[in-house]
Design a protein around this nucleic acid. Structure first.
Lengths: 223, 223, 223, 223
DNA sequence: GATGAATGAGGGTTCATTCAT
DNA sequence: TATGAATGAACCCTCATTCAT
């Protein structure tokens, strides 16, 4: 149906977001370094990470770091840009298949939770948040790639759903915020503070279902 | 009325949580050092802060730092404990005065938003989040003092409200999560990533009102 | 005689040039560091000297260097200021005792040559000259303390000699330049380029005598 | 006349001093590198210059540097040899045309001053002097090519002048030293320490004329 | 208790040099 | 021949921590 096609078209990968780095050579070594940097920055944060440790983790000499990146700041920023790409790609990769609207939302919410609370993503988030004071731009970049991108896509979906009559008339952006808040906030918060290693699949499903109940009670079209 | 008294009794400050730390002297100098440390740790994070900078900010000599705290780690942990106390106290200080249940919730949500998104609290949060990987305990400590404490208090309030028949029968903890998510998640997220200096009072009110609409649609007792 | 007294009064140490450093503490350690720095900077030049080597030569830890001096540049500049003081003091310390005017000039010239071509002074000069491009001020500072100061003093002496009728009427500054050039230029040049370890006393005397012949032929009063 | 021919024959360029270095290929690239090296070594001194900067200034890759020169030391030494050639050539290029002996000396002195105090020559001198401690040979090499060569040529000229009866009997080498000292020492000294960008032509002429007066008073043949 | 001088390990960065291409 | 990627030692400087006063 048109509705489903619309949903999927929003979900499909966006062109123009090439995986390759912005400014040129995306060589093997460069990737190797970024991988090492990711590992160390995630574990230690920006300030805690030493170029020595990064070189070691990347399996290259310290000098080589400076062949590919001007300095620590730039390495960090490039890593963020890289992470941003991957996050956006992961978001876009989601393809809902279920029949009902609620089922699709449910699948999306579960997927979203999985993505967000993966330990790898959480430590990236912590790394970014811990660096916001020194790199204000980095916070915004990451926010746009993650939370905002997810919200934007949901907004489009909700806009169509409203047009289709599957959702009651409302501001689709507000609806998107509410949906995400209800289904992910709790898990995110705990993970952010490292209070739980990872929620169980059942735990996530329960949270999502409860959130959807509240969401639907307000936003679905009443008979 | 009984209902209002019940609400207020939950809200009132808890005795036994003295401002002074459990484990030690709380002299003038000690406070002075913690104040300096707070300032620097907030601005630079754990790793970025130097004992030198802290000594300067505190107006004491570097040696004095080590008279009151064993080392940097301990100073940081004591500061977190201190911040925790203040956060809890601030939370407890809130006293709702409005007549209707919804008005009280609204006032609480607005207050909560103000508290959370104050730049001083936000930079503390960022500092804590950035240090979670190195100080796992610190994240949990802070989470319990902040988000969880707020949730717990709301849960009690909602429990009574359910008993009173002002809220429909449900798990009051889940309701508390939903309430907080709907009313604070969006603002928190943006602030966390440094994407907005501070939401305007009107912006906060709008968000709270919209959240309350959704919350009430599901949780309030239908006629 | 008045003439001799005049000469000596010019030669006497100038007040106002306190030996102590400009900005305060001239502690034992500070001196120790400057001594180490002098040794290394002289031997290796500004760029060639490493703070590590200086610390070692001074017998202190690297960190201590930075307690007393902000950075390498400042340490270098302070050393230059220090050297300048010593050079000026050495210049001022000269006390001529001979009877005749020519004998006094001769003694001064020999003394001046000794001072200038001492290996310690020569390597300071080379160090300064080698750093002029990076520290333009340093060259001027040193020039004023050394060559110019010597010239100025001679100029005063010559001024009096002209008034006394022991020198023919002329520009005393030009005479001073000529005197210094005739008596020191050759030795200086060779030493500057490291072409001779040190001229022999006899060699110096010969050069001075020959220079004085030329000088006197033009500047002395003809009968 | 014979006298003039004699002077000029001394002045004329010496054959056998080919511009090309004795020991090796003088390809385009090699020259390119030396040019880049000259620029950087002059500006930064031996220690301050980096092979990276030299490669950039020369417009070749860093690796190429090591194809033509074994290492930094050798590159520096070759550059000195090169500079030496150019300095000697410049000295030899001078061709006096004036009639009188004094006029010729005057022209030579002015020319010599111009050559010596050109900023390009001065920074070479500073570079050499700054490197004497590390490269003792370099100082001597340069001294021989510059000051000594000039002195030697003058000595020959003065020897003939003595034979011709235009100069009084004396040691022509001493006379040459005195001449050069009187006419160039002051300007050189100031330039060496970077105390003046460049003397004005009038200033130089004044100094030369004053120096010549003194020189002639002693060395010219009295009537 | 309070200080500030002193330390040496480790921070980010640059360097001369090598080597596969 | 000419390159530029790669290296690890050494650079200047900062750090958390100690200790005599």
């Amino acid at each position: 149906m048109a509705a489903k096609a619309g949903w999927m078209s929003k979900i499909a990968a966006r062109p123009g977001d090439t995986a390759a780095g912005v400014e040129g050579h995306d060589s093997e070594k460069r990737r190797q370094i970024l991988d090492g940097a990711r590992e160390v920055f995630r574990a230690k944060g920006y300030e805690g990470a030493s170029m020595d440790a990064i070189a070691k983790a990347a399996g290259v000499s310290k000098g080589t770091l400076y062949v590919y990146f001007t300095n620590k700041d730039e390495l960090f920023e490039q890593l963020i840009a890289d992470e941003k790409q991957e996050l956006a790609a992961a978001l876009d990769a989601f393809q809902p298949k279920a029949e009902s609207f609620r089922e699709n939302l449910r699948a999306f919410a579960i997927s979203f939770n999985d993505l967000l609370t993966g330990e790898s993503h959480m430590s990236t988030i912590r790394m970014v948040v811990g660096a916001v004071e020194k790199f204000p731009a980095v916070g915004a970049i990451f926010f746009k790639a993650g939370a905002e991108r997810g919200t934007t896509r949901l907004t489009e979906v909700f806009g169509e759903a409203i047009a289709d009559g599957r959702l009651k008339p409302c501001d689709p952006l507000v609806a998107a915020h509410h949906f995400i808040a209800l289904c992910t906030a709790e898990v995110m918060k705990k993970s952010l503070f490292g209070c739980q290693l990872r929620p169980t699949p059942e735990g996530v499903e329960k949270i999502v279902d409860e959130g959807l109940d509240v969401f639907m009670a307000y936003y679905s079209v009443k008979p």
